[in-house]
C-alpha cells in the first residue's frame, strides 16, 4: 500500500531530477569550469549513473555519481544526482551530505535545495536544524524563481546523455592533447643547459602506458595462478596469430584461486593483449610456436571461468611463464608479499 503510494512520487521525482541533471550537463561549463575538464571517463560515469537512475538501479547510480564526484568534486550537479539516488534508498545521511556540498559549492542553490535538505535533516532526527530549511523550501517552491527554473528544465533536452562525449567535446579535447611527441631529454647534468633543472631531476625513460599492467605485481592479482604441464593443443585449420589454438595443460599445483579441474584448456595467445602492433611479418602458425610437451608453466588466469571453453591468461602471452626456479621464486615472493600476513 505504502509502496503503491510512493511509486508515482518517486517516478515523478526521478524524471524531475534527471531533467535537472540534463540541464546541468547541457550547460557543461558550469559543471566543469572549476575542474580539469570533461574527461571521457567522467562522461562515462555520469552517463552510467543516469542510465541506472532511469532504470531504478539506485545503488549503481549512487556509486557512479560518487565516481564522477571523485573526478569532479566541485560540480554541484553530481551531488544533486547523488542526493536523488540516495533519497530513493532512504540514505538520508548521504542526502544531507550531498545537499550540504551543493549549498557550499553554489550558495545560489541554497533555496532550491532547502526543502530536500530539511527533509533529510528531519529523517536524521535533527529537528531544530530541519525546521528553517523546510520552511524555506516551502517558501521557495511557490516562488517565481522556482517557476522560472521549472520552465527552464521543462524546455531543456530531457533525456539521453551520450555515454561517449559529443564530437565537439572530443575535438576540443583532442586539440589540447600534446602533439609534441619529443621524448623527455636525457639528463645533461648541467643546470645551465637549455633543459635546465628538469633535465637533472628526470632521467629519461619512456613508459608505454599500454604495458603498464604487464608486471608480475599486476599478474599476481589474477583470480587464479597455477603450475601446469603442457600436453598439446587442439589442431585446427583456422589457427593464426589472432585466432589462437586451444592448448591443453594439466594442473600440477594451484598456487592461488579456487580448485579447478586438472585438465586446463587455455587460449594460447601469441600476443600480449595490450600490444597494439599486429602480427609479425611472415608469421605463420606451426608446431614450433607451441611449447615442448611436458614442459611446466606458471599460468596466470585472469578469471577462473572459461570463455568459449578456454581460460584466458593474464594479458595474453604475458600470463604464461616457464616454471623454472627463477620465475617460481619471483612468483612465490610476490604471493608472500600479497598474503596479508
Amino acid at each position: 500500500m505504502v509502496i503503491e503510494r510512493e511509486l508515482p512520487k518517486l517516478k515523478a521525482r526521478y524524471k524531475w531530477s534527471l531533467a535537472l541533471l540534463s540541464l546541468g550537463l547541457a550547460f557543461m561549463p558550469s559543471a566543469f569550469a572549476q575542474d580539469e575538464g570533461p574527461s571521457v571517463t567522467l562522461m562515462k560515469y555520469v552517463g552510467k549513473a543516469q542510465e541506472a537512475m532511469r532504470a531504478g538501479r539506485n545503488q549503481e547510480a549512487r556509486d557512479e555519481f560518487r565516481k564522477a564526484i571523485g573526478l569532479a568534486p566541485k560540480t554541484p550537479e553530481y551531488y544533486i544526482g547523488l542526493s536523488d539516488a540516495c533519497y530513493a534508498m532512504k540514505e538520508y545521511d548521504q542526502v544531507a551530505f550531498a545537499l550540504q556540498k551543493v549549498i557550499e559549492l553554489n550558495p545560489a542553490m541554497k533555496d532550491e535545495c532547502s526543502g530536500e535538505y530539511g527533509e533529510a535533516l528531519f529523517h536524521l532526527g535533527r529537528y531544530d536544524e530541519a525546521v528553517p530549511y523546510l520552511k524555506a523550501g516551502l517558501k521557495y517552491i511557490d516562488s517565481p524563481a522556482a517557476k522560472a527554473r521549472r520552465t527552464a528544465i521543462a524546455s531543456a533536452p530531457p533525456v539521453s546523455i551520450p555515454s561517449t562525449p559529443p564530437p565537439s567535446v572530443l575535438s576540443a579535447a583532442a586539440s589540447t592533447q600534446p602533439h609534441d611527441t619529443k621524448p623527455i631529454p636525457l639528463a645533461t647534468e648541467n643546470p645551465a643547459s637549455a633543459e635546465g633543472w628538469h633535465s637533472i631531476a628526470t632521467k629519461h625513460h619512456e613508459v608505454d602506458i599500454n604495458k603498464a599492467n604487464q608486471t608480475l605485481a599486476g599478474a599476481i592479482r589474477c583470480e587464479g595462478i597455477v603450475i601446469a604441464e603442457y600436453q598439446g593443443y587442439e589442431k585446427s585449420d583456422n589457427i593464426n596469430f589472432f585466432h589462437p589454438p586451444k592448448a591443453k595443460f594439466r594442473i600440477t599445483k594451484i598456487l592461488k584461486g579456487p580448485p579447478l579441474n586438472k585438465d586446463l584448456p587455455v587460449r594460447y595467445e601469441f600476443k600480449e593483449r595490450s600490444s597494439t602492433s599486429g602480427a609479425p611479418a611472415g608469421w605463420k602458425f606451426s608446431d614450433d610456436k607451441m611449447p615442448a610437451k611436458g614442459s611446466p608453466w606458471i599460468i596466470f588466469l585472469e578469471w577462473c571461468t572459461p570463455r568459449d571453453g578456454m581460460f584466458d591468461t593474464y594479458e595474453g602471452s604475458f600470463g604464461r611463464l616457464p616454471a623454472d626456479d627463477e620465475n617460481l621464486n619471483k612468483v612465490y615472493a610476490e604471493l608472500e608479499k600479497h598474503s596479508n600476513r
Binding site: P38, P166, V169, T176
Partner: peptide, 8 residues
C-alpha cells in the same frame, strides 16, 4: 580548459 556550452 573551458568548453563551449553544448547547444540546446
Amino acid at each position: 580548459m573551458i568548453f563551449p556550452a553544448r547547444p540546446l
